[in-house]
Design a protein around this nucleic acid. Sequence first.
DNA 1: TATACGTGGTG
DNA 2: TCACCAAGTAT
Length: 294
Amino acid sequence: MTSPDVLDSYAPVVAEWYSANARDLPWRRAGTTPWGVLVSEVMLQQTPVVRVAPAWHEWLARWPTPAALAADQPGEAIRAWGRLGYPRRALRLHECAVAITERHGGVVPSVLDELLALPGVGTYTARAVAAFAYGQRHPVVDTNVRRVAARAVLGEPDAGPTTTAADLTLVESLLPLEPPLAALVSAALMELGAVVCVARTPRCGVCPLAERCRWLISGAPAPVGPTRRPQTYAGTDRQVRGKLLAVLRESHGPVAKDALDAVWGDQVQRERALAGLLEDGLVVTPAPGIYALP
DNA sequence: TATACGTGGTG
DNA sequence: TCACCAAGTAT
């Protein structure tokens, strides 16, 4: 257990550090709309900042409002998604735009439960939008924040694999009472995890929390067990799906089956991947043997 | 709770 | 080289 006094000491230190060290990211600039924030948050789900920035500018220039995106075809969103990965996010963002236009008069909702009800918006993204677009006080817990909290507060080498209720409670206890300041601290915790308290080789020498980091103070012990993860992308259905969708993305119109057949040798796996794309609504088949983006 | 879901950079 | 990692969500 950590005393309230100690928990209260993190926020001002992190806030001050952030004020002097925050990266100048496009979606953080004054004038960014809640829609711009939402688009950035979805794009940043599992995709690094450097790859998101150009796509974000293109999207916001082309679809400055939810209504603008909702009026376009979902396939255009998928095409404009480019190579950000996990293209179902583009589809969900389009569904989001439709929902916001139909249910919320074209205004990105500010109420947490209403944000959570949007397609593709989960625990993290809903709180991020509420905090960063609307200045509300919510724990915004992503992989960076969980790592910072695990190390600095709990003294553990790393965080667990997924966000738990305990994570939200812990981070909430670190936030100052005043909503706009709490939102700033939330951004600061994420930034610290993204550029200083990084996963592989943390830069403890420049960390503002070094003197109160329980993990560092205890000697920065390495993680214990073999943290296995089922990875390896080559040869997976995901890779095949990616290749199939790339053909459709780069085509201006529908393509014949032959064009898709050319991207992967194993017919069984290829058909399975294509069936999955159809199932997910990422691909449609307007006529037998013809495929297109929705 | 475990698994599926893209893509590219890096130590 | 290759396993790990990057602002998660849905099922």
